[in-house]
Design a protein around this nucleic acid. Structure first.
Ligand SMILES: [Zn+2]
Ligand SMILES: [Zn+2]
Ligand SMILES: [Zn+2]
Ligand SMILES: [Zn+2]
Lengths: 142, 142
DNA sequence: AATTTAATGAAAAATACTATCAATTATGAA
DNA sequence: TTCATAATTGATAGTATTTTTCATTAAATT
C-alpha cells in the first residue's frame, strides 16, 4: 500500500549480505535518495544527484540493478514515457504513477485471477504472471 | 484477440496518408517483417533484418516510431527484460508474451474497473488508465 | 597483521539513439 | 508532361546511454 519509507537500513544490509554483497556507504547513499523521494529518479537524475555525493556513475548503475534484483526498487514509466526507479517493498505489486508529479505509490492488491483465466481460455497461453502499472493523478495533484 | 495478420496494406497506407505521411516501400518493408513475425523484434534485430533489404537504420527507427504512433506496433518486454516491438491493432489492449519464444498475442479483453475503483479508494489516486502485460507459455511452448 | 574477497571509479569501449543534409522520390498543379 | 513543392531516404556525424576494464581502495576473515 505504501512506499518503503522508514525501512530499517538493517533489513537492506541483511539482504545485501545474504547474497555476499556489501552494504557500502555508496550503496547506502543510492538507497537514501530513492527512499526519500516518492517520485523516484530517472537514471540520469540519479547519477546527477549522486555525483554531488561523490558516487561514481558505474556504481549508480550497479547499485540500481542490485536494488532492483533485491526488490527494493521498481521500474515505472512517467507521463512522457521515461523510465524511473522508485523505492518499493520486495515482491509482486503494482505501481500507481502520477502523470503530473510522477509520485508513485505501491499497491499490493492483486486480483487478476479471473482475467487471467479468461485470457488463458481464449488464447491457450499458460499465463504465469503479469506486469501492471496504473497512471492518473495523485491526491496532491488532483 | 489475435495479432494483426493479413492486415490490408491499404488500411495502413490510409493511416499514413491521413497524417500527411507516405507509405513508402521502405515503410512497407518494415511493416512486413513485423506483420510476419508474432515474436516481434528488438530494435537491433529489426535493423539487422532490414539492412538485408537495404533499409537504412534511421528509417527503421523513424518507421518503428511512426507505426507505434499509429498503434500498429506495441512495445513488450521479453523474458530477459529486452524491449521488443510486435504488430498490433490500434487502441487499448494487453499483450501476452511467451517467456520461451517471445511470441506475443494481443488481447482486448479489459475489465479492470473493479480493481481500479478499489485502488482509487485505497490510495486517493484518480486512476486514469493502466498498462498491463502478461507473460507465460504460449500453446506451442507449453 | 596478513590474506582474501568485494567494491569503487576513472577511463575506455561498446551500444543506442538522434540530427543533418544532399540526393531521391512522390505528389499535384499547370 | 513539365515544373514546383513537399516528404523521404540513408550516409554520416554527433550525442547519449550503458557496460567493461582494471588499478586502487575498502571491507571482511583468519
Ligand atoms: Zn502528483
Ligand atoms: Zn498483480
Ligand atoms: Zn512460445
Ligand atoms: Zn486494459
Amino acid at each position: 500500500m505504501n512506499i518503503a519509507e522508514g525501512l530499517p537500513q538493517q533489513e537492506l544490509k541483511n539482504q545485501f549480505n545474504k547474497t555476499g554483497l556489501r552494504f557500502t556507504p555508496q550503496r547506502e547513499a543510492v538507497w537514501r535518495i530513492f527512499e526519500g523521494n516518492p517520485s523516484g529518479y530517472t537514471i540520469s537524475q540519479a547519477t546527477a544527484a549522486l555525483a554531488a555525493q561523490k558516487v561514481g556513475q558505474a556504481t549508480v548503475y550497479r547499485t540500481i540493478r542490485a536494488l532492483q534484483d533485491l526488490g527494493y526498487l521498481k521500474k515505472v514509466h512517467d507521463q512522457n514515457g521515461e523510465r524511473r526507479f522508485v523505492a518499493s517493498r520486495p515482491g509482486h505489486s503494482h505501481m500507481l504513477v502520477c502523470r503530473s508529479c510522477s509520485r508513485a505509490v505501491e499497491c499490493s492488491d492483486c486480483d487478476l485471477s479471473v482475467l487471467e483465466k479468461l485470457i488463458s481460455r481464449q488464447t491457450g497461453f499458460a499465463v504465469e504472471g503479469h506486469h501492471l502499472e496504473f497512471f492518473g493523478l495523485c491526491p496532491e495533484c488532483s
